[in-house]
Nucleic acid binder design. Structure first.
Length: 521
RNA sequence: GGGCCGCUAGCUCAAUUGGCAGAGCAACUGACUCUUAAUCAGUAGGUUGUAGGUUCGAUUCCUACGCGGCUCACCA
C-alpha cells in the first residue's frame, strides 16, 4: 500500500492503524470530522438525574438521551460491546449491540478506538450488575484519536509528560481536573467577596517602564515603536495605590506577576496574585478582613474549616497572632541560649541572638540554616525569623512587627519607627499573604527609595528603584490606606492538597523540549 | 546555581557478578450478544535519553551532555 505521509506516522504503528481505520470509516460514508452533534444531555447530568432510578422505573419510562464524549474503555463481545463514555467530568457506560444499532452502524463502532470522540443516542437501562447504561441505537464519530491514551489502569504517572501535555493529563487523571475546578471556584469566590464589599476590580499594566512594588528581578522586553525597554511587572502595587490617590477607594486585582527567579515546588516564574487596597484603613483592619476571607473561602471550597495538607491538618478556626520577635523566641530550639523578647528589641540583642543561632546551627549540622551576621539589625531579625520560625508556622499565623529596612513601602509604627505596621500570614510553613499600612508620606517614601538605591549600588539587584511618578502621586495626598497581596497559587495548593505549585498551574514553565535530532530528515 | 535520584515498547514497570531485552495494558488476527482491569487463542511492537570510553561482550561499569523529579539557596 502507498504510505500515508505526515509526521505522525513515524511515531508508531498504532497511529498508522488508526489512520487506516479512519479511511475505512470514510469509505462507509461517514463524515470524518462533523462540525456538530445535536446532544441533549451529558454523562454528568444523566448520572445526577437518573442515578437513583431503579431498573423497573427505567423500563416503564423509557428515557431517550443523546450525549457525546470520549471513549475511555471498550469491552467487546463479538456482536455486542460495553464501553465507557466520558464527558470530561464523569463516565457513563454505553451498550452497543448489533441488533440494536444495525449492521452498518455496528461496523462503524468496530472501527472506533479508545480515545475517539463520539456521540450516541439511545435510552437508559440498568445492566445485570445494576450499572446505569445507555442502550445505544446509533453512534456517530465526532473526531478520531490518532494517538493512544495512556494505560487505563495506572494512568499517566510520568510527571514531565503530565506538565508538558496537560491536555493528556486532564483526560486521564480526574484529580487534576478537580484541582483546577477548585482553583476556578477559589478565584470566583474571592471576586464575589470583594465585589460584595464595594471593591472595584481593576487591571493595571503588566508591562511597565520600571518594575516596582516588590523586591525581585524582573523580565525585560522591548517595545519597538517607542524603542524602549519594558519590564514584566513584579507587582501591581504602585499602580493600585495611584488609583487610591485618584479616589478609587477600594480596588482589587487578580492577575499574573512575573519574577525572574528560580523554579521550585513553590515558585513558578509567572504566578497569580490577588492584591487589594482599602482607603481609610490600617493593617489591623486587613487582619480581620483576611480572617473573614479565609474562613468563608475554606468553608465554601472545602465544606469545613479543617483541611488536610499532606500529613498535616490545617485548622482555619483560629488564627495565631505573633510579632516577629515572639515567633523567634517561641520556636527557638535550644533553651540554653534562647533570646528574650526584650533583648530582640535592640541591635545588640539581635546580634547576640544571631550569633547564638549560628552556634546552634553548627551544632545541629545542616539541619539549621545559618544567618548572615553581616546584615544590619532589621534584616538580621528577618533572617533569624526565617531560619528559626517560618517552617514551624503550620497553623494559620499572622506575623507582625517587621523591620523598616525590609519594607520600603510600609508605614512606620508610631511608637517604634524602626518597625512598620505590616503582617504576613503563614500557613503550612508557606507565606500566603503580605499586608501593611501603606506609606503615604512622600518625603519618607523618597528617603526609603534612596535607601534602596544605595543597596542597589551595593550590588543588590532586587532592591527597589526610584519611582518619581509614584512620589508625585503621593504628593497629591493619599489617604491612610491598607493593602494586601495573597498568593493565589499557594492558596490553591493548600485547598487542593497539592504539594507542588505545578499541580495548580495548568501550564507551568518548563524548559522547551529538545527537537527530534538533526537536519538529515 | 549546588547536592541526590530517575530516564528500557504508545503507557505502567521488570531484567541475577557485565552474557540472547521481558511482562501487563494498548495495538493487530480470530472466537464470543450483560461486561466493567471482560475472557480465550495467536501476532507484531525496542538504536534501553544522547555522545563517548572500558570490555570478547554494556540496559548494567566510567565520563560528558540533555530532560525531569526531590532538596538547598532566593523569593510569594
Amino acid at each position: 500500500m502507498t504510505e500515508p505521509t505526515g509526521p505522525l506516522l513515524s511515531e508508531g504503528d498504532q497511529i498508522a492503524q488508526r489512520r487506516k481505520k479512519l479511511e475505512q470509516i470514510i469509505a462507509l460514508g461517514h463524515a470524518p470530522y462533523p462540525s456538530k452533534f445535536d446532544w441533549n444531555t451529558t454523562a454528568t447530568e444523566i448520572l445526577n438525574t437518573y442515578g437513583s432510578f431503579s431498573k423497573e422505573q427505567l423500563e416503564t419510562t423509557k428515557i431517550a438521551v443523546r450525549l457525546c464524549g470520549r471513549l475511555m474503555t471498550i469491552r467487546g463481545h463479538g456482536k455486542a460491546a460495553f464501553a465507557h463514555l466520558s464527558d470530561g467530568a464523569k463516565r457513563l457506560q454505553i451498550y452497543v449491540r448489533l441488533d440494536a444499532v444495525g449492521e452498518d452502524n455496528f461496523k462503524l463502532f468496530q472501527l472506533l478506538d479508545i480515545g475517539d470522540l463520539i456521540g450516541v443516542e439511545g435510552y437508559l437501562f440498568r445492566t445485570k450488575t445494576n450499572e446505569l447504561t445507555v442502550h445505544v441505537e446509533k453512534c456517530t464519530l465526532l473526531a478520531k484519536a490518532f494517538l493512544p491514551l495512556p494505560e487505563k489502569w495506572h494512568g499517566l504517572s510520568d510527571v514531565e509528560i503530565r506538565y508538558r501535555q496537560r491536555y493528556l493529563d486532564l483526560i486521564v487523571t480526574p484529580e487534576v481536573r478537580e484541582a483546577f475546578v477548585t482553583r476556578g471556584r477559589i478565584i470566583r469566590f474571592i471576586r464575589g467577596f470583594f465585589d460584595a464589599r464595594g471593591y472595584i476590580e481593576v487591571e493595571t499594566p503588566m508591562m511597565q517602564p520600571m518594575a516596582g512594588g516588590a523586591l525581585a528581578r524582573p523580565f525585560v522586553t522591548h517595545h519597538n515603536a517607542l524603542d524602549i525597554d519594558l519590564y514584566l511587572r513584579i507587582a501591581p502595587e504602585l499602580y493600585l495605590k495611584r488609583l487610591i490617590v485618584g479616589g478609587l477607594n477600594r480596588v482589587y486585582e487578580i492577575n499574573r506577576n512575573f519574577r525572574n527567579e528560580g523554579i521550585s515546588t513553590r515558585h513558578n516564574p509567572e504566578f497569580t496574585m490577588l492584591e487589594f487596597y482599602q482607603a481609610y484603613s490600617d493593617y489591623r483592619d486587613l487582619m480581620a478582613l483576611t480572617e473573614e476571607l479565609f474562613r468563608s473561602l475554606v468553608q465554601e471550597v472545602c465544606g469545613g474549616l479543617r483541611v488536610e495538607y499532606g500529613d498535616l491538618e490545617i485548622s482555619f478556626e483560629k488564627f495565631d497572632c505573633l510579632t516577629m520577635r515572639e515567633a523567634v523566641v517561641r520556636f527557638w530550639k535550644n533553651p540554653s541560649n534562647r533570646p528574650t523578647l526584650e533583648s530582640l528589641r535592640v541591635e545588640a540583642g539581635v546580634r547576640s541572638a544571631a550569633n547564638a543561632h549560628n552556634q546552634n546551627a553548627v551544632a545541629a549540622g545542616s539541619a539549621l540554616e545559618r544567618v548572615d551576621e553581616r546584615l544590619s539589625a532589621g534584616p538580621l531579625l528577618g533572617a533569624l525569623f526565617e531560619a528559626v520560625a517560618e517552617k514551624e508556622l503550620i497553623q494559620p499565623a499572622f506575623i507582625s512587627e517587621f523591620p523598616v529596612e525590609l519594607s520600603p513601602l510600609s508605614k512606620r509604627n508610631v511608637d517604634n519607627p524602626a518597625m512598620v505596621d505590616r503582617f504576613e500570614l503563614f500557613i503550612a510553613g508557606m507565606e500566603i499573604a503580605n499586608a501593611f499600612s501603606e506609606l503615604n508620606d512622600p518625603l519618607d517614601q523618597r528617603d526609603r527609595f534612596e535607601q534602596q538605591l544605595k543597596q542597589r549600588e551595593g550590588g543588590n539587584e532586587e532592591a527597589h528603584r526610584m519611582d518619581e511618578d509614584y512620589i508625585r502621586a503621593l504628593s497629591y495626598g493619599m489617604p491612610p490606606t491598607a493593602g494586601e497581596g495573597v498568593g493565589i497559587d499557594r492558596l490553591t495548593m493548600l485547598l487542593t492538597n497539592s504539594k507542588s505549585i505545578r499541580d495548580v498551574i495548568l501550564f507551568p514553565l518548563m524548559r522547551p523540549e529538545k527537537k527530534g535530532s538533526d537536519s538529515s530528515e
